[in-house]
Design a protein around this nucleic acid. Structure first.
Lengths: 163, 163
DNA sequence: TCCATTTATCTCGACATCAAGATAAATGGG
DNA sequence: CCCATTTATCTTGATGTCGAGATAAATGGA
């Protein structure tokens, strides 16, 4: 009996005409996501980052040398709008963690690259981040996590096709 | 092979020292949550609402008559800060969907109640919202959704205890 | 080659959110 | 009954996000 069960019970009492089974799944996904995001943010914050800035730096880092991507590529990986990405890049640039270079292959765009400082920072933070994630699934039996992962993969496949 | 698999493959190439298994689960949860939130927002928007305003109205509706709760109770249900709730209530009040009454039992606080207009609106929107949720799990075998739900319940239980 | 169209990025204005602090009322131990 | 403490809500300032539109460069068919 978690919070979501309480919510569903309320709906069943007030609106017995509605089949709220799926709503329970949506609610658990949302609430769990919120709790986990808060927990992950603690590590980011300890290094002066937010989820937004962490994700940009991490995307550049895992792309491999030379750790440079176009804003378009960053937008595709992170699922945000172009205006949002411009704002993120402005702040990261002001903080000296990335730099914008001209894109030799496309004069319309730029290339966003990790600075040495940005690289060193994300290198440290991602290590802690992964440890934090391990800690957050500690209470969950590994086989249980596997089943959740498989289920989410199937559901996510409805929205992200796979070549 | 979804987007998350690509991300994990990049990390394994760049940082083979990290065990990124759990990261995959976090990534799928986050990305799926983002996709679903976008899809749910379409119904809200069609009625001039956002996820934020919908959730406040829905919380008041499902509480049952007289459809009035304190801001504190709304904060507890919706997992936002007091400043955020004040802002949401200001807008909903300006839109005529809720009203703030004095709380006869506590002079510090108020009671937030659905107006007739707010009640009529949420009554319509929640019906469409539930139908939308059914549509969004259509492609998922019901027993698969059940398993996801059970897994999420177990994980969520680590963060929301149950008396 | 030219130009209409497409694409990449940035700008701007409106909200949403949080964290920290302010304000006012309730509470309870002495 | 008093006052220090706690609690409920609001205020303020900084940031993050989106959506629509602006700008500039690349593209491709005539």
């Amino acid at each position: 009996m978690d919070q979501v069960d309480h919510i569903l019970a309320q709906w069943r009492r007030e609106r017995p005409d509605l089949d709220v089974g799926p709503m329970g799944t949506f609610g658990r996904l949302k609430r769990l996501g919120d709790h986990l995001a808060q927990a992950l943010a603690e590590v980011y914050k300890a290094h002066g980052l937010t989820a937004a800035s962490f994700n940009v730096l991490a995307t550049l880092r895992r792309a491999g040398p030379p750790h440079a991507l176009s804003p378009s590529a960053l937008i595709a990986w992170t699922m945000v709008t172009s205006g949002t990405m411009t704002n993120r890049l402005d702040r990261l640039e002001a903080a000296g963690l990335i730099e914008r270079r001209v894109n030799p292959e496309d004069g319309r765009g730029s290339l966003v690259a990790l600075t040495a400082e940005g690289f060193a920072l994300i290198e440290r933070v991602v290590t802690e981040h992964v440890a934090n994630q391990h800690r957050l699934v500690e209470g969950l039996p590994p086989e249980q996590r596997e089943r959740i992962d498989e289920g989410l993969r199937a559901w996510l496949a409805l929205y992200e096709s796979a070549p």
